[in-house]
Each structure stands twice: as structure tokens, then as C-alpha cells.
Amino acid sequence: MAQLLIFNKPFQVLSQFTDDRAGERRATLADWIDQPGFYPAGRLDYDSEGLLLLTSEGALQHRIASPRNKMPKTYWVQVEGDVADEAISRLRQGVELKDGPTRPAAVQRIAEPQLWPRNPPVRYRESVPTSWLELTITEGRNRQVRRMTAAVGHPTLRLVRCRIGEWHLDDLQPGESRLETVHLPQPAGTRPKSAGKRRPTRKTRPVKP
């Protein structure tokens, strides 16, 4: 068994525990998480929000983060403009980026999800409509979702990751987390251990406001 910390990363927080950039210090995971030995399984951009998974177990970290495992990641994406069927079709087929074509994505239009207010908010322009998409990819290229929507003519305004594999944000608010126990598959030829009692999940509040 392994411990997994499910965290709702706020906007403009680095998905690491230190800031290597010189100058004004940016917010990091250390401002929100006090779990020694836990490290992110994958990343989430500084200006993106939502689900980030952390674990102290290397096998679980590899299972989640390795591109070979093609673990699906689902995002709620607010984009500029009214998204036409042709743009949806292109995303579903895969789009050409500078580092090569993407795999096909699962995409659908959605109503605006019930989310927490972002601080600062997305800039509102009366003359430019916006749309919301739910988009699922099985890759993890740098800023991939933003580049995909831009490639079909709809720049991303807000990006919230809501699901990774079987794990979902549920009711976590920005800066909140919950701890879950994950059963890892036994290596071939290993005698299974007694499962015992399952540890209950525990929601934690931010370490700092």
C-alpha cells in the first residue's frame, strides 16, 4: 500500500517545494503542504489550477507520471470565442504542434462548471465571448492543453485539472488536500500480504493561508 495526497493547487503556485528563480519569491507547495517525504507525481503549470497528486512511494509516482502509462488527465478549459464543430473535430483527431502531432483527445463542450473564484479573475471583455470545454489527454507535454486550444484558434483563458486516472478533485477547495491509501499491484511471484483494515481518508487544510 502507498499513501497518496490529493491536492487542489491554487492559481499561481509552483508545483514544487522551492522556487529556483532569482528575485521575488513565488508561492510553492511548501506554503500549503506539510507532509515530509511527499513529492509531486507529475506537474501542473504555475498559472493552471486544480488536481495535483503527491506521494512518497516511487512505484506509485512512476505509475502516475510516466508517459508510457498514458494515464488520462481531464481538464476544464475556458477558451476565447465560440468553439465550432470543426475545432472540436481537430482536437479529437489530434493537432500539429511544434514538437509534433498530439494524440487524439476526448473533447466536449460543457456549461461553465461551478468553480471557486480565481484571484486575480480572468479578464472580462464584453466583445469577446468565451466557451468551456472538457478535454482529456493521455500525454504530458509542456503546456500542452494551452497549445492545443491555441492551435485551433481558441486561446485558453483558464485551465483547471479535475481528474487524473481514477482520482478526482471532488469537493476540495484551493489549498485543501486529502490523504488516501492506494493498493499497489504485487510483483509477479510475490505472495500477497493480508490487506488488513483500510485507513480512512483524511482531508487537510492549507498549512498557510
Rank of each mutant, 00 (worst) to 15 (best):
L53F: 01
M71S: 03
F38A: 00
K193E: 10
R158M: 12
I88A: 02
R146W: 06
T190E: 15
N8I: 08
A195R: 14
D34F: 02
D171I: 09
M1K: 14
K208S: 15
T156I: 08
Q61E: 15
T102I: 08
L44G: 00
S56W: 09
M71T: 06
P36S: 09
T74C: 05
G165T: 07
R26V: 04
T138L: 10
A111R: 12
R158I: 10
Y124E: 11
L51M: 12
R191S: 15
R202Q: 14
P113S: 04
D82Q: 13
P200A: 14
L172Q: 07
H183T: 15
S15T: 06
P36L: 11
G58N: 05
E24A: 11
A87G: 02
A84F: 05
R125M: 15
Q186G: 05
R26Y: 03
E96A: 09
G58K: 01
Q12F: 09
V77S: 06
R143D: 05
P120E: 07
F7Y: 02
T130Y: 06
P72H: 09
D170F: 00
R63I: 09
Q186N: 10
S177D: 07
R141A: 06
G42W: 03
E86D: 12
D31P: 02
E80W: 07
R92G: 10
P36M: 10
Q114T: 13
P36E: 09
T204C: 14
V182P: 01
K197H: 08
T156P: 06
L159T: 01
L157P: 03
P209D: 11
H168L: 14
S56K: 15
R68A: 14
G189L: 07
M1N: 12
P209M: 03
L51W: 00
R205K: 15
R92S: 07
P117D: 06
K73C: 07
P155Q: 13
T156V: 11
D47W: 02
